[in-house]
Design a protein around this nucleic acid. Structure first.
Lengths: 257, 257
DNA sequence: TGAATAGTGTCTTTAAGACAGTATATC
DNA sequence: GATATACTGTCTTAAAGACACTATTCA
């Protein structure tokens, strides 16, 4: 749990559910790079994924969305619940006992204050195109920035585990459902979507087989336009067939890479 | 939330996490039938899946196990988290406001008591062989019994949805990982495991292709014994190769039915 | 015409799916 | 020998995977 959240829930304890929160692993893709949005609470040297408490009036999905919106300024991002984390070690941390809390905040609190009990975290991941994001850090965050998924800073609690589980879930998802609508421009080239899949999966995919299979699903449509990319052959542009895409999200699209 | 749980958490509020609980959908298999263990709290006419609060000293997995043990008397059952449920409508229910609560229990409580806020439910499912289970109903349950999955009684809250999501998760699991170790005798016949798969998936599977594929995974081993089943040809007995089975649980076993 | 990237077709191998007749045990 | 169940092999079709050359653009 982050210092800022402790403050927030102390100031407005009545509007939040207790002992349960949402952690939302925000993945950002841009130009063959996959990154994750992390924040560093003031007065702590470790980083956390974005997360927050759940209001009594909202669902866990709404909470995950609200958190993503508050950091990225974007709505209608693709997001997905992947699993919940909950065990007593989630509270064994320097910030999670009364003495340390008082030292950090100057506020005196009883030893058995309920916020020192562990919190069950419901994990979501969210996908976004990171060049479109104007990061808005929270008032209690010293920093909020993108980190490459294979070069993460020191993370609080089990957040490294949460990120790796989120990535595992994302890679499983990509093998069964279409992906990319929120990550590419409306019109995109075959090499662009090819790179997206390679980057998320972290492995090369044969370009001929990739194009063959992707076209076979019908979720993308070739346009009669090309994109000029300089001193090279101009690639054709494609767009998603939103109907087929949504159908794929519902029923699965056979793209088992 | 069940009446019994409300009592329990009122009597011992300090040992449990607040606003979060575990619901454990216990599936029972026996003789070509798949059932789910449901309980009916005293003074209510609707049924619920088994569930309970999470102690501050235990993980959500330990809580799910404790619940399964308390109802079935069995340990080391196969269980799996599938997803969390949380939205404000989870608290709109006859038992979830102060007036009704007082009417049912005779205990006066304030209108804004925290237990009337909604609870996030972390959903697990558990598999067991139901002829081995001696059902132990909780002190606050009027009934606790097996129900066929395609003939359920009226269920509280979103519990029908929880069961259908659990079943969906189980069927997804069975397509990617081995299953059955906890559901069959140590030695079993091909027709027995064939029926198990057909029952869980709810559809017929070609017997020749099933045997071919199952043997190809190496997770079962043919023994040099047969089982006498009366006036018919005696089927051979098989057992699981526990090493291959566990490896399949870790890395997946290609059995995409 | 050289450099960089786009785009595409064929063959092989493997897996999935459909399908039916023989073998065995007991009465 | 009648009956009920166990057991298994082949063919067809579809998908996956490996693989390399031609086309375009522009400097």
């Amino acid at each position: 749990m982050k210092q800022s959240d402790i403050d927030d829930i102390l100031i407005n304890p009545d509007q939040y559910l207790r002992n349960v929160l949402v952690d939302n692993v925000i993945f950002g893709y841009h130009n063959k790079e996959l990154k994750v949005l992390l924040q560093q609470p003031i007065a702590l040297d470790k980083w956390t994924v974005t997360g927050g408490y759940i209001k009594k009036t909202e669902s866990i999905e709404e909470a995950a969305n609200r958190i993503a919106y508050s950091r990225t300024g974007l709505k209608n991002l693709f997001f997905q619940q992947f699993r919940a984390f909950g065990n007593p070690t989630r509270s064994i941390d320097g910030s999670k006992n009364a003495k340390n809390f008082t030292k950090l905040s100057g506020i005196e609190v009883p030893d058995d204050l309920w916020i020192f009990d562990y919190f069950v975290s419901v994990g979501f991941y969210t996908l976004t195109e990171f060049s479109m994001v104007k990061i808005e850090k929270g008032v209690y965050e010293a920093e909020c920035q993108w980190w490459p998924i294979d070069d993460l800073p020191a993370l609080m609690f089990d957040h490294e585990h949460i990120i790796s589980e989120a990535l595992k879930a994302l890679r499983l998802h990509i093998a069964h459902y279409p992906i990319g609508y929120e990550l590419l421009s409306e019109k995109f080239t075959l090499p662009e979507i090819h790179s997206l899949y390679e980057t998320i999966l972290g492995k090369p995919l044969d370009d001929r087989n990739f194009a063959k299979r992707l076209m076979a699903t019908g979720i993308i449509v070739k346009l009669n336009e090309t994109k000029r990319i300089g001193a090279h052959r101009s690639p054709f542009l494609y767009r998603f067939d939103k109907e087929k895409y949504n159908e794929g999200l519902e029923n699965g699209a056979a793209l088992a890479f």
